[in-house]
Design a protein around this nucleic acid. Structure first.
Lengths: 329, 329
DNA sequence: CCGCATACGGAAATCGTTTTCCAAAACCAT
DNA sequence: ATGGTTTTGGAAAACGATTTCCGTATGCGG
């Protein structure tokens, strides 16, 4: 393997000089640079990032933690956007991503998880969709070994940042829009998984709407499950004017149930996934730009790794109405 | 940071001895092992894999190349199964995966791609869904720097293996089943993207069926696109008894078109993705177990990295009939 | 032309392992 | 005891970069 040493010899300069040229250090004359670059080209030299990491003690390695949740269509789409968004931006920023699923962490003891990350020289973590009191997350923060960026799970400390969209506002907005469009006077709300951050935020949003409008609000826990949403809809939808769901998948379940019952109720969802187009009816939903969120998360992590202070960022969302034609490719 | 040196001191042995214990080398007495392990525990020592990689020249780093193709729901689901299948197994085998999307490679010159992989000390590649004469793939093989496992793109050489399912047989089977169940006597076949390996294999399968049954076969190129499948169905479905599609997504497009036309034709797909449940009708399809394929690919790569010879593997598939209840969670 | 400041380039230590090679110790049969 | 194996443990040289520190050119003003 051709090393920096060979380049130095070929260029007739010292090893350290080559390193300086390679890393754009000052105090190297143009002439020397040229010599070095030529030697690099001639020898087709590629720096060994492993050696560089060891030497500089900066691995540039970052782990991406994903919550596979109850595996489903919807989650796949979201996770793929997270993954591709993260990786693309990371490569641009010269970070090196290894992907980890929470399912790989379950039934492992927490120390093992930390050991694994440490052994991999991982210095930064991007964590998607993990509730803020998840024990894994707590352990990772507690270890104080990593810079952490969480998405949709606000944590506050100097070496961590959080990014989220205002779930309460979004839930409020989409429900309100649906309510107004249909002149509804009561709401069936199918909530997400218990104890989740986004679940409780969205609950706040819908609660605020009901309070402001002074209309009845029936809340049932649908746990982000299509089947549960379906069953709850079959059971409760007749009694309320509109069905507001904490996720698109649930909205689809609700819509299907309504079609089976042969009654009409406006339904709205949350997430803006493609599957919405297959629900059979138009629906309002909240589009979160997951790719962009991921990309921002990477940038934020980079900032932390470069010594920046932790901060909180709120990104925007968009209300959309989805139907089949929107997804056809 | 606590290093192997500290462990050696604490245990009262030499560095090399610690290393031997850590890596299960022979010729270390039980007693010494115990001392070392105790020291490791006391100091909470975690080996630095970067240093190990540099020293041993075995990075254990592997890249996973994914074809995002025309980004869609279906592709997301398949890719997620590939990714999670790959990563889970890789961690078990102590390989270290970095994920790359072909979209990150487009409009990069090929040398850059190789340089990137080299600089990352990547020694093995798992490549999903890339046609065998893709220029990137060709370049990677040509570089002779990597052990490669391709999925659904047979290549033959000593440092490469390929895994695939028998696309022709699967296409034949599912189409035949659909034909027989419905006593059809003619076929409209909507094919996949031109020049793809799986496309041409599946074509062979459908062709064989038509030949054997001595029935008319109309082939149109639908490029794995839902919209194209829809349009082609609108145009040609009346003339044939059944519609055989080269992918589930196309099958859904076809089914929707038929519903719009208000005529009935049996449709079958290929892949077995969840989305099929939302098509509105039951359909036959071929279920490929993408997770298992990924897992096998990782094992095969490990074998290659350990010095094994390249080989070809054919995995099995399964005919299924999918409907809404199958996907409800 | 001298002296001083600055730009430039090089020698060498370092990062934390693995691995080779060798010496010492332990064992065994005679 | 002796000599010869076999275990066992240690010293030291890699691996391929980065980075610090220092000495020498170089430039410039006087």
């Amino acid at each position: 393997m051709v090393s920096i040493k060979d380049v130095a010899k070929q260029a007739g300069v010292a090893i350290s000089t080559v390193s300086k040229v390679l890393n754009n250090y000052p105090n190297v004359s143009e002439e020397t640079k040229k010599k070095v670059n030529q030697a690099v080209a001639e020898l087709n030299f590629v720096p060994n990032s492993v050696a560089a990491a060891l030497s500089s003690k900066q691995s540039g390695r970052v782990a991406l933690l994903l919550n596979l949740g109850n595996v489903s269509q919807a989650v796949d789409e979201i996770n793929m956007q997270y993954i591709s968004g993260t990786i693309s931006r990371a490569v641009e920023l010269n970070l090196d991503v290894i992907t980890i699923f929470d399912s790989m962490l379950k039934n492992k003891n927490l120390d093992e998880v930390v050991r694994y990350l440490r052994s991999q020289s991982i210095t930064g973590l991007i964590i998607f969709g993990m509730s803020k009191d998840d024990r894994v997350l707590q352990k990772l923060i507690g270890a104080q070994l990593f810079k952490i960026v969480t998405v949709d799970a606000p944590i506050v400390n100097a070496s961590s940042s959080s990014i989220w969209i205002d779930q309460a506002a979004a839930q409020y907005d989409v429900a309100r829009k649906t309510l107004k469009e249909n002149k509804g006077r009561s709401i069936l709300y199918l909530a997400g998984k218990k104890n989740g951050y986004v679940t409780s935020e969205r609950l706040k949003g819908i609660q605020r709407l009901a309070d402001e409008e002074e209309i009845p609000l029936l809340i049932r826990n649908g746990a982000f499950s299509e089947l549960q949403a379906r069953n709850l809809t079959l059971r409760y939808a007749r009694k309320k004017d509109i069905v507001v769901c904490a996720s698109d998948l649930m909205a689809i379940g609700a819509m299907r149930a309504l079609m089976d019952m042969d009654i009409f109720r406006p339904v709205c969802g949350f997430d803006g996934i493609t599957l919405m187009g297959y629900a059979g009816k138009q629906m309002n939903t909240v589009r979160q730009n997951f790719g962009r969120i991921a990309s921002e998360a990477v940038e934020e992590l980079k900032r932390l790794l470069d010594g920046g202070e932790g901060q909180q960022m709120v990104l925007d969302y968009e209300l959309v109405r989805m139907e089949y034609d929107d997804v056809l490719v």
